[in-house]
Amino acid sequence: MAAGGDHGSPDSYRSPLASRYASPEMCFVFSDRYKFRTWRQLWLWLAEAEQTLGLPITDEQIQEMKSNLENIDFKMAAEEEKRLRHDVMAHVHTFGHCCPKAAGIIHLGATSCYVGDNTDLIILRNALDLLLPKLARVISRLADFAKERASLPTLGFTHFQPAQLTTVGKRCCLWIQDLCMDLQNLKRVRDDLRFRGVKGTTGTQASFLQLFEGDDHKVEQLDKMVTEKAGFKRAFIITGQTYTRKVDIEVLSVLASLGASVHKICTDIRLLANLKEMEEPFEKQQIGSSAMPYKRNPMRSERCCSLARHLMTLVMDPLQTASVQWFERTLDDSANRRICLAEAFLTADTILNTLQNISEGLVVYPKVIERRIRQELPFMATENIIMAMVKAGGSRQDCHEKIRVLSQQAASVVKQEGGDNDLIERIQVDAYFSPIHSQLDHLLDPSSFTGRASQQVQRFLEEEVYPLLKPYESVMKVKAELCL
């Protein structure tokens, strides 16, 4: 049975990233139509530049190519590739079939990587351009969430054990800070992308030097003109047959890092959902379990974690691919890159769409948070109580021993009897502590235990987050809708 299948058929496997999760716009960027249309555009740009620099290419040939950029006979191309065992030459023939007058000058002087690699770089750039505003929107939604809850005390956790208090907004800023680093890295790697350009079979530009009869300047002009037509500021000066596969490492490393950030955020949300302090959106008709109707599973956060793990592992592909590119190139890269580049971007696209949807509907339960604080705060307040007693004339050592005994009794009630923490009640009825009984409410005010959390939130948002989001103001209103 021949390899390949009808990918629109229910009898043929289709990647869930495309069929179930990723956005239509990201799927289109990695589609065959987008790819092969870009090949034709690159052939047109090459012909236009070659004509401008004096090669015998007519206006009629150029116009014929322009008129057929979208006229792609995919069936013919597939048949040609089956016959020739070469995808680029299959599309040269297919393009030439609908451009008979231009057929002889299509791909003039070029090698397969002229269309293959340059198209990949265009796709990487455009895919990054799709991700950047999506990530900015996630940051914006979380920034709104953090600002609104900047002063809401909550129990902090280290080692997932109760620690000092923080605020809900401050905790959210930990998430935002990681995503801001990801946004900066995505922008950097996007701006650092260079075009492969017009380089020939081993990167020496020998074929173009021959076409222009040894004119170095025209060869350099050709490279520059096509690079500018493709919208790049610069091209690699040095290439082998391909652009260095280190570029793929750079791009997928940034995406993998984004995956790590999203995994951490969504894990926190899942843990908070278990504590009943916070939940992701839950639709009115949504079913959490087929057997347990009360369940409210954090399905979206779980999906993000599941896909983020996949995204983090994909960076190993370009690392290994770059390491086995012998001399000017081997074909070890080809099949692998067809999979890992598309999957990385479709996965990143999915987790950003999902995280935006989550961040637009996060639900906080202040009463649950308050109750958990009441359970733990008495123990945390013991040092403040000791200091207040010393100020009232008591002995630190005597007070410490009193607190120690009462704390152990209260802990026994919590752990052995399943009761509430009654340390404060014990202190309130103990005559030894009568000098500070009137101060206990103040000493137990949760806001006095959150330090500068709310001020940190305000400063972080104003100095770091809002300036970073400013270039994306025009796209901030787009909502994230999930079908599944």
Rank of each mutant, 00 (worst) to 15 (best):
A431Y: 04
A344R: 04
K367P: 08
F345Y: 08
C172T: 09
D6Q: 04
E401F: 12
E80Y: 13
A102G: 06
L444V: 13
R309L: 05
S290I: 02
A18W: 15
M387S: 14
C266L: 07
P318D: 01
Q161W: 00
I427Q: 00
S253K: 08
I62G: 03
A102T: 14
H97T: 05
P467H: 03
P318N: 00
E70T: 13
I385P: 00
G169S: 05
K415I: 11
I106P: 01
A348N: 04
L461Y: 07
L275N: 03
P281D: 14
K134G: 14
G5D: 07
L346E: 10
V324P: 02
E360W: 01
A90K: 01
S323N: 00
R194N: 02
P24F: 15
E370W: 10
I62C: 05
Q221F: 10
Q416W: 12
H442E: 09
V363T: 01
R137G: 12
Q439V: 12
T202A: 11
L275T: 09
N421T: 06
M65S: 09
T158N: 03
R234W: 08
G104E: 08
L307R: 00
V189K: 14
D182G: 08
L484A: 13
E328G: 05
T52Q: 07
L252Q: 08
R85V: 11
M278V: 09
A256Q: 03
K66Y: 08
T267S: 10
K35L: 08
M389H: 12
Y432S: 11
Q325T: 09
N336K: 06
Y34L: 06
S261C: 09
E279A: 08
S253I: 08
T227W: 02
G231N: 12
T354R: 02
E81P: 08
S407C: 12
N421G: 05
F157L: 06
A260V: 01
S290V: 01
T347R: 01
H7A: 08
L346H: 15
Y34V: 02
D59R: 06
D445V: 09
I265K: 07
H310R: 08
E283K: 13
S253E: 04
P100G: 05
A291M: 01
Q184T: 15
T154K: 02
N353A: 11
I339W: 06
M225P: 00
F460D: 11
C304M: 07
Q210F: 02
A344D: 02
W43G: 01
R171K: 08
F282H: 14
H442P: 06
K147G: 11
Q408G: 07
L311N: 02
H217A: 10
T242I: 09
D445A: 13
W39V: 08
A308P: 02
W39K: 01
S253G: 09
T321A: 03
L128I: 04
K147H: 13
S112I: 02
P366V: 07
D117K: 00
T111P: 04
Y466C: 13
P56T: 02
V324H: 12
I265S: 10
Q61C: 11
C266A: 07
L275K: 13
H91V: 09
Q409H: 07
V457A: 10
E302G: 02
G361P: 07
G419W: 14
S112F: 03
V92L: 08
C266M: 13
F236H: 08
H437F: 14
V262P: 02
V115Y: 00
N297Y: 05
H7I: 15
F433T: 07
D120N: 13
Q428V: 09
G361R: 14
I403F: 09
Q164Y: 04
L319N: 00
A342N: 02
S31Y: 01
E70W: 05
Y365N: 15
N421Y: 05
I287F: 02
I424R: 12
I386F: 02
L44G: 04
T244G: 13
Y294L: 03
L44H: 01
V168P: 12
A411K: 14
K147D: 07
A163H: 00
D73V: 03
C305M: 03
V138W: 14
S112A: 01
F232L: 11
S448E: 10
E148A: 12
L352Y: 05
Q356V: 03
R194L: 11
Q375P: 10
E463K: 14
D268T: 08
D120F: 15
I57M: 06
I57R: 01
N71L: 10
P100Y: 11
E279K: 02
A78M: 10
L174W: 11
P467Q: 15
E220Y: 08
D87P: 00
L165R: 03
N185L: 10
A47C: 05
I106Q: 01
R374A: 07
A77W: 04
E283S: 11
A150D: 09
I176P: 02
L53A: 07
K415V: 09
D216T: 12
A344W: 00
L130H: 01
T227P: 05
G288F: 00
T239I: 11
L352S: 05
Q458P: 06
L222W: 03
Y13R: 12
I373Y: 03
G109S: 05
D120K: 15
Y365Q: 04
Q41L: 06
V315M: 15
Y243T: 11
V324Q: 09
A342Q: 10
H107L: 03
I385M: 04
Q221C: 11
V390H: 10
V414H: 09
N68V: 10
K75L: 09
P378I: 10
I436P: 07
L272G: 15
Y365T: 13
H93I: 02
R374L: 07
E70H: 08
F433G: 04
S15F: 13
L46K: 02
A77L: 09
M89Y: 04
L469F: 12
Y114M: 07
D420F: 05
E60V: 08
D6P: 06
D191L: 07
R329L: 01
H7C: 13
F160M: 01
K101D: 15
L44E: 04
L17N: 12
L271H: 11
P10E: 11
M312E: 05
I427F: 12
C399H: 15
V254Y: 15
L355R: 01
L252E: 05
L174R: 04
A143F: 15
A381V: 10
K264A: 09
S434L: 11
M316F: 07
D268C: 13
A22E: 05
S407D: 00
E463F: 14
L482Y: 13
D6I: 14
R371V: 01
L121W: 02
R83V: 10
S19C: 15
F345L: 12
E64Q: 14
N357I: 12
M76G: 11
V390N: 01
G418V: 02
L271S: 06
V168G: 02
K470I: 07
Q51H: 10
H310K: 05
S448A: 10
L186Y: 10
H93A: 06
A381T: 15
R194S: 10
K477L: 13
G96S: 13
L461M: 09
L124H: 14
I351E: 01
I373M: 13
I122A: 04
K82H: 04
D398I: 02
S19E: 14
D182E: 05
V262I: 11
W326L: 09
C98M: 07
V138L: 15
Y21E: 03
H7T: 10
Q356S: 06
D223P: 01
K66D: 02
E463D: 11
A381D: 02
C399G: 08
D317A: 09
L341Q: 04
M278G: 04
V324W: 03
L42R: 03
K276W: 05
R309F: 10
R188G: 09
T94Q: 08
P471S: 13
K264F: 02
L132F: 14
L352H: 11
G240A: 11
R245M: 01
A143D: 01
A431N: 12
H310S: 08
S253T: 11
Q286Y: 00
R141I: 02
M389C: 10
H263R: 04
G54E: 11
R196L: 11
D6M: 14
V315K: 02
L482V: 13
A3N: 14
S306Y: 07
A431F: 03
I386K: 02
L484Y: 11
